[in-house]
Simulated scan of single mutants.
Amino acid sequence: MALTSRLLSRSRQLYASQIILQQEHGVPVRCFSKEAARPALKGDEMLRNIFVEVKSKFETALGILRKEKITIDPDDAAAVGQYAKVMKTIREKADLFSESQRIQYTIQTKTKEIPDARTYLLTLKEIRIKRGLTDELGAEAMMMDAVEKIEKEIKKPLMRSDKKGMAALMAEFDKINNKLGVRREDLPKYEEQLEHKIAKAQLEELKKDALEAMETQKKREEFKDEQMVDVKSLDIRNFI
């Protein structure tokens, strides 16, 4: 069951700030509709509704995991692809955010009240660091340089309400995208690559957990003569 819990847990995000650059600076992504206003609920009723919703999502995920074969082999591209496909099905059926959607939601909620472009970018940096993301492309420095360039031209801080100034900044960000090789039409491919990286990282954690569990069991007297099996031969459906 520990393996199953790991499957349902959030993974550590391992992708570059390229995704943030794509989603927040001039590259269109899927939009998220706001939830309809809900009537005020009493404490007990609210807790009950939350419990029912979480229970439903969990059971949906388990139902899919009971049917789909997952091979714990992070070095096999086919196994990683299949695992990513299963996780995508779970997200769609259980109405869960993907990692890129979760990042975008965090950015939207954390930055919606920020009035100026400089503080906005600094907040993006804080979000990236807190979530364990890396800026492998050096995009943050280039974006901050772009803000400074525009602010020198307008001789004042760049406010997000300044349509002309922000349009100029977006043009600078487009230049950065071009320099980094980021194309608007390639966004679906970037998201797919992201989910593939996350799937590989999760399979690596599953493999590590499985090996540690077998090593621990082998130390017990009744299992000392047992041979450890190859984790690739394990069928997670047998542990659910």
Rank of each mutant, 00 (worst) to 15 (best):
Q108P: 00
E24N: 12
S9M: 14
E24R: 11
M87H: 06
G43D: 11
E212Q: 11
L62D: 09
S5G: 13
Q193Y: 01
I198N: 00
E136H: 10
A78S: 11
R160I: 04
K112T: 01
I64S: 09
G165E: 10
L133S: 04
A77T: 13
K218M: 06
L21N: 03
L234C: 10
I70H: 05
Q23M: 15
T111I: 02
N178W: 00
N238H: 13
M214Y: 07
G165S: 06
G132V: 10
L211Y: 04
R160M: 06
D44I: 13
K175W: 08
L14V: 14
K112S: 02
E113A: 01
D44A: 15
I198E: 01
Q23V: 05
R12F: 11
L8Y: 03
F173N: 02
K57G: 07
L133I: 02
L65R: 08
A37N: 06
D135S: 06
L21H: 01
V27G: 02
K156L: 07
A213V: 05
Q108Y: 07
Q101P: 04
C31S: 14
E113D: 11
K207E: 14
K55G: 05
N177P: 03
S11I: 10
T4V: 13
R38Y: 06
L137D: 10
G81I: 12
M228F: 08
D225I: 08
S11C: 06
A146V: 04
M214R: 12
A16H: 12
E205T: 06
Y15C: 00
V231K: 04
D73H: 02
N177A: 08
I154P: 10
T123G: 02
L180S: 08
K112C: 03
L8V: 08
M142K: 15
S98L: 09
I236E: 11
A168K: 11
D145V: 03
A117G: 07
R102E: 13
K208F: 08
E136R: 05
E24V: 08
R131L: 15
